[in-house]
Design a protein around this nucleic acid. Structure first.
Lengths: 236, 236
DNA sequence: ACCTGAACACCGTTCAAGT
DNA sequence: ACCTGAACACCGTTCAAGT
């Protein structure tokens, strides 16, 4: 074989290696992209490896296991949250509601993250910052320390559960029309129940199937929790 | 081969067929047993089939898919709940708390059922009876209809999320000592944080790691929710 | 109508072998 | 130290073939 004259004589060495090396960040970036595009179910060690043009075994040099990857995704979501600060004793209830709305908003931008978050203790740096912020708001509200601490457990639990519910529906690929059709079916199902055994379910079929699409149900939830916490503060 | 004299001459035909036929109930019974023994992760179509001495394909004649099996398990848990009745306007808050305690108790006897329940709309007969009962208690509390309906969504969501959390710990096979060790680790982790950025997390390390074992945290949650709902009733 | 074996298209994780 | 192929022990679901 002859060397073309415009090529250097030194052995052909690409300026960049064909593959850039694997690292934690690239793995989490890829997992996040897959999760946003295709949902939590699609985030598998095998699929992430495939996206990175390698085999699943390669990931284990950078991530302990799937659970750790899930935790890293949760921390990404926490990092995306813009929580109200500094805490204001005059407005703590509104700040708390704002924080919960923001938590849900961030989780919605990463559908599936709720599934990764639920039932895991979030100890990443961003998750801790979220906790610290909530602690501040609740302290500003004048709650006793133990109530503050348990509330910081209760609040993400509720928001995550709501996001998780939405995520299940999304995973089933329900369009708004599908949802409306499902609710219609539900209403006629309620109407067909034996009236002697399910009188209230039948009477409240309307309210029971309302607010499934928008944020009214979530707003109700955060109002109940905020009012409940406020009632604890008043007893101080 | 000679026939033993005390055996009938007619061809050996067992009085019962070697296998009793498969049906929904046997499948759900088996799945429930596996779930109680080995947790939700162990409840797979393949494993249940194996327990029933058949192949996984055989189950699909009686159960649409895994999701339907999950729903049937959830309804078994709902059927095991002994909710307070009839509703008493004088005691509705205590009845509501009792109901939530009973829901958690039933879910605890079937670890894993929370995982099957979360994010699915429970429409089995027993689940509907649970709803009907909660509707009665909340109506007795004088809440507006829409609040009653959304509360019936919020309450099982919270209880299920709590049960799910406990279930994750159980799935990781944590003994009480492991939990204590984990909490110790957590406390020293909190103590090691940068004091300028996480002052409250550090100051509240005690309360934050308290009540993880017993029911204090759950009692706090049901108090907050009940008080929040009561504050809506007062505004009527 | 019900059951079955075999297949399809997946999982998470480990491990010995390479560079 | 990092990467890899191959294997292990699993998944849910489908489908043609049996009875």
């Amino acid at each position: 074989m002859t060397q073309s004259p415009w090529q250097p004589i030194s052995p052909a060495k690409p300026v960049r290696p064909a593959k850039e090396p694997l690292n934690r960040e690239r793995i989490v970036d890829t997992a996040l992209r897959v999760m946003i595009d295709q949902g939590y179910e699609a985030v598998s060690m095998r699929k992430i490896a495939q996206e990175l043009q390698t085999g699943p075994a390669s990931l284990y040099a950078h991530v302990a296991n799937k659970k750790e990857l899930d935790q890293l995704l949760v921390d990404r979501a926490a990092a995306a949250m813009n929580l109200p600060s500094p805490p204001d004793p005059e407005r703590w209830q509104e700040q708390l509601k704002e924080a919960m709305r923001e938590m849900l908003r961030a989780m919605r931008t990463m559908p599936g993250v709720a599934r990764a978050a639920i039932g895991a203790v979030p100890l990443g740096e961003a998750a801790l910052r979220t906790s610290e912020c909530l602690l501040g708001i609740l302290k500003a509200g004048g709650l006793p320390d133990q109530a503050v601490a348990w509330a910081v457990d209760l609040i993400p639990l509720y928001v995550t559960a709501v996001a998780f519910e939405e995520n299940v529906q999304r995973a089933d690929q329900w369009s708004p029309e599908d949802l409306e059709q499902f609710l219609d079916g539900l209403r006629s199902y309620f109407a067909s129940l034996p009236a002697d055994r399910f009188p209230l379910t039948m009477a409240l079929a309307g309210p029971l199937t309302a607010g499934a699409a928008g944020d009214d149900r979530f707003e109700f939830g955060i109002s109940v929790i905020t009012a409940g916490l406020a009632s604890l503060a008043e007893r101080r």
